Every structure is written in structure tokens, then in C-alpha cells.
Computed example of a mutant assay.
Amino acid sequence: MATCSEIILRQEFLKDGFHRDLLIKVKFGESIEDLQTCRLLIKHDIPTGLFVDPYELASLRERNITEAVMVSESFNIEAPNYLSNESAVLIYARQDAQCIDCFQAFLPVHYRYHRPHKKDGDTLIVVNNPDLLMYCDQEFPILKCWAQSEVAAPCALKSEEICQWKNMQYKSED
């Protein structure tokens, strides 16, 4: 029986200020030769303190920089954090050219305005770990190892077809 090596997911914020880029890297602990037949989808819940601009996403998709799409329908990018709702984004991760068993995804995020407070200091915004969903054209031991449940989601960015993605367990790394 194959031993299960872990999947590691790392989230990293690039840039400073109100406009940041969230880089998500996923590394499989063992190299799977046929990983090309698999697709990785990251479902991220964006907290009220941040927002993703759907128009910016559309522009980045056109320029082939990212394959991300908003799930939330009613969405106000102008609203301050105390008047906004959490939103969700689907990001189709791409295979990393430098690493055979790695995927990465890119998402521009922006800080919302917060209520002023008396003390000087920073406002802490907690970005939770995303759901890591995997769909493969064939069965792999790693799918049996780490799949917790199944989630229905579009098979690809511009697809009407719905696939049953496996919700994968992973280890989060800072």
C-alpha cells in the first residue's frame, strides 16, 4: 500500500498597503508523474476586511494572469468592512513551471476601510485557510489518502459542466 505523503499549502501576501497580491502555493509531498491529468481548484472565503475586485479579475483573466472568478453575486467594492459581507472566490490553480509536483494561484486583494479607533495601530484581518479541491481524470493513491468529501463546482473556468471535486486535507505552512 502506498504511504500518504502530505500536501502542503502556503499563503503569502506580496506588496504593502491597501493593494496586495495573495500567492497560494501547493506542494505535493511525492512526485506524481501523471499530475498533469489533475486540476486544482482553491475556494477562498474572503473576510469582510478585504475585497476582491471582480472587474480587476476579469481583466486579469483576459490577460491570462489568473483564472479566478467571484462566487458571491451581490457585492459592493465601495462598502467599508462593517457594512460588507464575506465573499467567496474560486481560483483554478496552475502547475508551477519550476516544480513538477507544485501548483500555484494568484489573487489580488484589497483592504476595505475600517471604522476609526482611538488607539493607533494596525487592524488585524484573519485570512482563513481555503478549501483545496482536486479533480483528476484517473484515480491516484493521494486522492484516497487525503480526500475528505466531494464538492460540486465547474470543471474549468469557462465551463458549464460541473465536476465532483475532492476536498483535500492539507498541512498549512506560514
Rank of each mutant, 00 (worst) to 15 (best):
P80E: 04
C145P: 03
F18Q: 13
I65N: 15
E12H: 14
I125D: 02
I125E: 01
H117R: 15
N167T: 00
I42V: 06
N85V: 02
D120M: 03
D131N: 13
V71C: 12
K25P: 00
I162L: 08
E86R: 15
T3E: 14
C136I: 07
I77W: 12
Q169A: 05
L132N: 04
Q104M: 14
C155D: 09
E139D: 06
D174E: 06
L132K: 01
N64W: 13
K27E: 12
I32A: 04
R112C: 04
I91P: 07
S87P: 07
S74N: 15
R10D: 08
D45I: 06
Y82P: 03
T48Y: 01
R115Y: 06
R112L: 00
E6F: 15
T3A: 14
C4M: 13
G121Y: 06
Q169W: 03
T48W: 00
S84D: 11
R115F: 03
D122A: 05
K171V: 05
I142N: 01
C163I: 02
K15F: 05
L14C: 12
V71F: 13
S159D: 12
I42W: 02
K144F: 13
V109A: 04
Q98V: 08
F13T: 11
P47T: 02
E33D: 04
V109D: 03
R61I: 11
R20Y: 03
P116V: 13
S31F: 09
C155V: 01
N128Y: 00
Y113K: 13
M70K: 14
L22G: 04
L157G: 05
C38S: 12
I8Y: 07
C155E: 09
F103D: 06
D122P: 02
K166T: 03
I162P: 00
V127W: 01
F28C: 02
I46V: 12
A156I: 05
E30Q: 10
I7Q: 08
Q98A: 15
Q95I: 08
E173T: 01
E161A: 12
S87I: 14
E150K: 12
D137T: 06
K15P: 00
Q95K: 14
A147D: 04
E86F: 06
T37M: 04
Y111M: 11
A97M: 15
F28R: 11
Q148M: 07
M134E: 13
D45S: 10
E62T: 07
I65M: 15
A88K: 14
Q148V: 01
L90C: 09
Q95D: 13
I91K: 01
C145L: 07
S87H: 14
L40R: 05
L107S: 12
A88D: 05
C102G: 10
H117P: 01
A2F: 06
A93V: 00
M168N: 01
L143T: 06
